[in-house]
Amino acid sequence: MIEIKDLHKSYKVGKNSLHVLKGINFSVKEGELVSIMGSSGSGKSTLLNILGMLDEADQGSYNLDGVPIKNLNEKLAAQYRNKFLGFIFQSFNLINYKTALDNVALPLYYQGLPRGERMDRAMSYLEKVGLADWATHLPNELSGGQKQRVAIARALASHPKVLLADELTGALDTKTSYEIMDLVQQINDEGKTILVVTHEEDIAQMTKRIVNLKDGVIIDDKKVEPIRASAHV
């Protein structure tokens, strides 16, 4: 599903250049649930942003579902994001003047789906994350955990190939974090490929594979037996 080879990325900071990713080789197969770990500043978010086509690598190749991701213009990048990817952010990134339902339906608007179909599909995903009763509420009327569920529903609604989550439990308490991870595991059980960036060991242990980043290179990549989050809820 994801194939990256010898990926490099530097940031310009003033006159200096900060080499953040120093040759990443990494692949993810369909149906995997992978966590990317590492200390702060190790380049986890940078990697995820490149995978999410929100940022571009300086060097190296990236294949997503057999499509080479190279020299994309803004328009094509947006269309690929819409078609292939679902994002879940630490800070939820819901549009604050739209209801939960409208937020979930937004990526479908950019897919060009007719309104009726958008609303039906958005509603079914809100049901899936257990928030059908909250459909008409605005984000600021929801708890952190509920907001993240809406964000997950939104990421799923466009039927992406891969879900990319950056610190999706970073703003939540432990109990809520486990509830969210339970949902993530269920989605993975249904076959969705998911990448999770985290620096929390317990969250990583709930995935099937842990990739460790340090100073811009992968120092460790191992399969683990996931702990079921439902056992802790």
Partner: peptide, 16 residues
């Protein structure tokens, strides 16, 4: 700005 970022992440092309 933030809303525009969210929309773009979700697949809004620049012209839209």
């Amino acid at each position: 700005t933030k809303e525009i970022g969210i929309r773009k992440a979700l697949g809004a092309v620049p012209m839209s």
